[in-house]
Design a protein around this nucleic acid. Structure first.
Lengths: 335, 335
DNA sequence: CTGAAAGCGCTTACAG
DNA sequence: CTGAAAGCGCTTACAG
């Protein structure tokens, strides 16, 4: 077990060069030599040492996917797509979770290729911004995901949050809803998503000649079910509760849904609900969730493609791509 | 950027040995030397090469978590727990997903430490069995998760599926339900979970003097929401539909719930529902889901502890641990 | 306290 | 077609 090339070479009575040739299936090996080497290989159960190979070749075949939270379904579903795309190109994806902790983000991303053993990184930052990223000491290629970083000088895949939020809000307006609330606003500079979606929400209301009612826009710390449930409870406690809510992700919407139904109210009859992300949960809730559906496969495909280009030495200017999205209309707005 | 120890040494006018001493914070370095080296380090933006270190030290500080499906919430939640436990011990977890594909499982697990760069593996197999695992060519420590492998000669953490299923079924019996169905039976040898839970279901019925009605036990290919929804539709099409269903995981239960509610039936009034796994989704569904809750933190803690022991050279006989579980009683059985 | 050197296991230009 | 040797970047026993 754990034999080295050298040990195999000694056993077969050849040089390591020849063993290496056999292991790597190079053609220029005499048949009898090959057979002899192969036998030694089998007898010793030789397995090449990936670390030594990586040191020598400068490539590990590993790319890292660094995400805030793996147990948020959107990220879990995106991860699946990235793993599939990378596998097609012969790369293995390793995933790591930062919880948006700046220390962990920095640790995983800033130290770069010499500190870690990854050929490249696909990174969805929460805490780290453009300034941090621009003076990264490392030269490992990085592709950014998400809206956190506006100007990092790196390849970047995002979605048009303003436009998508506008679309969602317009859908609710089109249903004739009068008091449309929003759940998921954020002020923190490190959480751009909420702000951008609020912009879109405002834009849609204004385009329809509606006033923005400040108390209908509820901030949340996170985008989890519990936050949505709590924010919805606040909305229901208002003198004039909303008749529709745009939640900035599906988890918030599922939390809000739970609160609404537990009060005996009906969706969409009393309150219509729109989410964002199109996670599987929302397709099986009752009612199923109308939601903005970003094309996750496209995001994964582009992230991997951009990264592999960089690994192949592409020196062109950083690309910024906007992913496609659609509005999936389901029962939570149409009954 | 990407300076080597040697380049730093040249710049500082010392040997690599001394630079290494400074980088690794060894005490026996003269203050002026240290300052000079530190300056060179800073000027060149030195970052140690993790691959070279690993080759030299024989340790990467990486452990791999190999799971069937990352976008199954139970695994996503378990992953979070493993990452947290490993981080406490200074290890970084990298996660990979096999989809239960024997080829991928073999690739990731069988080739072992010389093929990959991980110090150890935590592995939840679906396809690979004890026979495969016993003659692994590699000596990388592995801790197994799940019920697939009964005898692999490796450390193993599982839960008492029969007992847990019995507990769930007994709960439904205790509610006075007369026709208790089960969703998630499996015949495939590589999918033990379903079989074991069916055993527990049978045991509980028999202990209560009830007959097992074969058509009430529905097999499913996977444990996804769609499978649960379809199986439930079949159950509702029976001449005598069930008044309770034990689903072998929460995803199946959520799928079943969707089907039940979409027919205008009520849970638990018409049909009571129990799941398994205690994923967050089930706490926010309406009704919330009664479920068997395995102690995921304990599983993660034990898995990491066992693995680290092996990394520290522990040669004792393989351990088998049963994780704790409880029945979380919620609205889907109590209204 | 510091240097010169070996070696982790591999790949590959250079000879022959 | 095959061998002897250098080198990827690091750590560390051995000297001094």
């Amino acid at each position: 077990m754990a034999a080295t090339l050298r040990q195999v070479a000694e056993r077969a009575g050849v040089s390591v060069r020849t063993v290496s040739n056999v292991v790597n299936d190079f053609p220029q090996v005499a048949p009898e030599t090959r057979a002899r080497v192969q036998q030694a290989l089998d007898e010793l159960g030789y397995q090449p040492n990936a670390v030594a190979r990586t040191l020598r070749n400068g490539r590990s075949g590993l790319i890292a996917l660094v995400l805030p939270e793996l147990d948020v379904p959107y990220f879990a579903e995106l991860t699946r797509a990235v793993i599939e795309q990378a596998a097609e190109a012969g790369y293995t994806v390793v995933v790591d979770q930062t919880d948006g902790d700046p220390v962990r983000e920095r640790e995983l991303v800033m130290r770069g290729n010499r500190a870690a053993m990854f050929d490249g990184l696909i990174f969805n930052p929460l805490a780290l911004g453009g300034a941090d990223l621009r003076n990264r000491p490392s030269s490992t290629p990085v592709v950014l995901l998400g809206e956190r970083v506006v100007e990092g000088g790196l390849d970047h895949i995002m979605i048009d949050n303003v436009g998508a939020a506008e679309l969602a809000t317009r859908h609710l307006l089109g249903l004739g809803r009068q008091r449309i609330a929003a759940i998921g606003d954020q002020f923190d500079e490190t959480r751009q998503t909420g702000q951008l979606r609020t912009q879109g929400y405002h834009a849609a209301l204004q385009a329809a000649g509606r006033e923005v009612v400040p108390e209908l826009v509820r901030p949340t710390e996170f985008f989890h079910r519990a936050d949505g449930a709590a924010a919805m409870a606040d909305l229901l406690a208002l003198p004039q509760p909303p008749d529709a809510v745009f939640c900035y992700n599906d988890l918030l919407a599922l939390g809000a849904l739970r609160t609404i139904l537990s009060r005996g109210l009906r969706v969409p009859d009393d309150i219509a609900l729109v989410g964002f992300d199109d996670i599987e949960d929302g397709r099986y809730s009752t009612p199923s969730l109308t939601t903005v559906s970003p094309d996750k496969t496209q995001i994964a495909k582009n992230a991997v493609r951009l990264l592999l280009n960089r690994l192949d030495g592409d020196q062109s200017a950083p690309t910024r791509l906007s992913a496609d999205y659609t509005l999936e209309i389901r029962e939570s707005t149409t009954g």
